[in-house]
Design a protein around this nucleic acid. Sequence first.
DNA 1: TGGTAAGTGGAGAGGATCGTCCACTTAACC
DNA 2: GGTTAAGTGGACGATCCTCTCCACTTACCA
Lengths: 220, 220
Amino acid sequence: MPALPETAVGLRADARQNRDRIVEVARRLFADRGLDVPMAAIARHAGVGVATLYRRFPTKESLVTEVFADQFEACVSVVDDALADPDPWRGFCTAVEKVCGMQAADRGFGAAFVAAFPDAVDIERERDRAIQGFAELTRRAKATGRLRADFAPDDLALLLMANSGVITGSAGEAMAASRRLVAYLLSAFRAEQAEPLPPPAPLDLRDVLNARIRDGVRKE
Amino acid sequence: MPALPETAVGLRADARQNRDRIVEVARRLFADRGLDVPMAAIARHAGVGVATLYRRFPTKESLVTEVFADQFEACVSVVDDALADPDPWRGFCTAVEKVCGMQAADRGFGAAFVAAFPDAVDIERERDRAIQGFAELTRRAKATGRLRADFAPDDLALLLMANSGVITGSAGEAMAASRRLVAYLLSAFRAEQAEPLPPPAPLDLRDVLNARIRDGVRKE
DNA sequence: TGGTAAGTGGAGAGGATCGTCCACTTAACC
DNA sequence: GGTTAAGTGGACGATCCTCTCCACTTACCA
């Protein structure tokens, strides 16, 4: 089945060069300014016309998917590393810190993770793997008694969404804010002082993420 | 100086009725769907034409300002109540819970608080009063030894931004998520287990807020 | 009751963005 | 070199939003 060029094989030399430049430029712009960079701006910075851009990536979504595919992979490997750590609690903490750091460092990544692209199968699969890995990590960390017992797996969604909320202003500010928030929350997650029990009823990460994309509800 | 009708005095009877209906409808729509409800939708729901809407509120910003003026007042009075509490720590906690609850209950309020409107003098003044009140509350709560000493006044900004991040999906979900996040954070703010010291360098609430409005930076 | 200024609605100007079309250019292979 | 299909650019259509304009209507007071 050679019908899926998927990445960039079988392109003419100049076309491939253009494609690579587009992805590279898009990655930079998304990181700096978030996902709402106009397609025209990306094309302009890449030194191509919009048509070229749209020929490679029929929709903006597909471009975003391509651009963040490896970021999501990195995210998964962070979780894998954490699972490999002999101390689950330490693994849990570092995983949280790393992922939130990635979110803070790359505005686009944060948005992409949170925005979820329904038909971006690859991204979704990667994301789910990461989520499941985290769930496992959570289980183990609880077993050691360091992570509070009433920590819900969906509290991870809470954490990521809260983290995305503090990402504003300059990259430096965002990082500082994120780090401080994460430190606070990790301290709250420790089993030791779990004295009062916070209200339950968290949210399902997948649902929340998938809901975000729904803007087309113009209706009445 | 009778040149500032300001609210609605001196309007013809029918005009006043329309104005009131507009504000009422806008409040409801903003609460449900956030601030990006189109002006046309507001006009339609209020049963008037866009021109009528724009005659009363020359800009969308001015409508938002009017709509949330009393919400901001309520916010200030929450802080005042907290200051009146003989137990500063309890006051601190309830104030945080209430304000975050308001943010979660009214999507528009959250956005308005975070978005900041440069020329909405009234809102800004109210907001600053609330911020200063909170700073005072923080000082007192620290003095009792219940609030950790390294809590920065700007951690309030962190809290509000994180809270705005978890507000998505249905109103019920948003409220549950907000409550849980606030519980976690308040627990992290307690002096008792302040064992590790989180990184510093938080953000200034006013700066952050005022920066948000800058979208007009098209440049390059 | 009638004059008039205040009030009104809806079309549309102006601007931004996603995505398409099509005549032109160029890499790649014979 | 020449043929040709892949590749390209920029104008353009479609949509959505804020805000303006202007001819028409109506509340209010004498």
